[in-house]
Amino acid sequence: MRRAGLVAAASTLAVVASVLLPAATATPAVASCAATSGSPVIETASWGQQRMGAERAWPRTTGDVVVAVVDSGVSAASASLQGSVLPGTDLAGGTGDVDCYGRGTFVASLIAGRQVDGTEFAGVAPGATILPVRVTSDPDSLYLSNDLPGLLAQGITAAVQGGARVIAMPLTSAASSAELEQAVQAAVAADVLVVAAANAPTTDALAFPASIDGVLSVAPLDEEGGADPSQLGAVPDLAAPSGGLVGAVPDGAGHVTGDEADLAVAYAAGAAALVRAEQPSLTAAEVAERLMATADAPTAPLAEGMTSDPSIGHGVVDPVAAVSRLDPESVVVASGETPVLDMPAEPDERPSDLALLIGIGLLAVAAAVLGPVVGIVSVRRKSQ
């Protein structure tokens, strides 16, 4: 992988694994063309996976939508991605489900990696289906190429035509083109969310397609925090882990580590898949707004006139909050007025009291009138 030396490191691990850890790898489904084949299994989850905590969202959704990865292809032979990779397409011809470089598979595994015995590793949306779109087998050769904007445009178009609901784009170009902007606009019109890396491909360069309206721009994050804004080529909407990550290799059950700014798109795209599956009525724009509204917001005060942090945008993507937090419109907000309790009126006991008094009075009158009569009758009886 670019700048991180992922392929070189993985090759060394492969040699060690073949000697010391033969039982830690699975037999590839097809012959491998990637240098990472045979890498050992990494048992523990990376800090980035732990930070996302996506497993808490899985009782609600695992992200059962199609997510395209526009990069170096995605291997269908990776143990973590068994049964979840479509044939896809290669812009040079053929399918995109073989990955000789390794990064496309790495990104796809962060998005949709299934749980495998012997490791804690898993992607954010393990129910997602990956649509691989290979634009190149060697991303390093394309970063400053004049052909890159056109290839990215073709990749977006292929992803939309392939039925993707989310498109993850690790590759960044220093220049845009009319074709690329039209492809993004077509994706927006088709209600497809494009998620692109915000890091600059070279010093003082812009980042495309992240700088194009309608694209969700994602900045890198490591354990120390966000990137220096000078390293970004687009204003970030969100940030996501990108350094010190664990991801799957193209063949077998092994893993390698990655430390590229481009990898941030994976966790954001995975979170978008969770939201799209949980709330299918939301448009792509509404999904992006929800991801930003539920992000783990920056704690530092923003500069005057700023609405987001120049390093991490609206905050670090939070898959669980994005899926489970109530919609703002459905939350009842207190008005600040003192509530008045409407109590029933007390019964008027005066009529019954008056009746009692009248009754007593009548008895008294009766006693006064009848008393002498009773006495006379009694006397007469005695005198007879």
Rank of each mutant, 00 (worst) to 15 (best):
R350Y: 10
A368F: 02
R114Y: 04
A112P: 08
V369R: 15
P280E: 11
V85I: 11
A54P: 01
L232Q: 12
T95M: 06
A355N: 12
D140R: 15
V66H: 12
A288D: 00
V133Y: 09
M52V: 10
A284G: 14
Q161L: 09
A266T: 04
L354Y: 14
G162C: 00
P241W: 09
A183R: 11
V256G: 13
D348Y: 05
D318W: 04
A31N: 11
P310L: 07
S242F: 01
G104C: 05
A367H: 07
T95R: 14
A205P: 01
P126V: 07
V135K: 12
T12N: 08
A186H: 05
E346A: 15
N146H: 09
T44G: 13
L357W: 13
G127Y: 02
A24N: 06
G83A: 07
A112W: 00
E260N: 12
V67P: 00
A295P: 02
A168P: 00
A54L: 04
D222F: 06
R276Q: 08
L274W: 03
G48H: 10
L274H: 09
S145Q: 10
D204A: 13
A92L: 09
D147F: 06
G96E: 01
S32V: 00
E286N: 10
V317P: 12
A248F: 03
G361A: 13
G96W: 01
A273Q: 04
G233N: 02
Y267M: 05
D64Y: 06
G96A: 04
V373T: 08
G150P: 02
I130D: 08
A45Q: 07
Q154V: 00
L193S: 14
V194Q: 05
A240S: 10
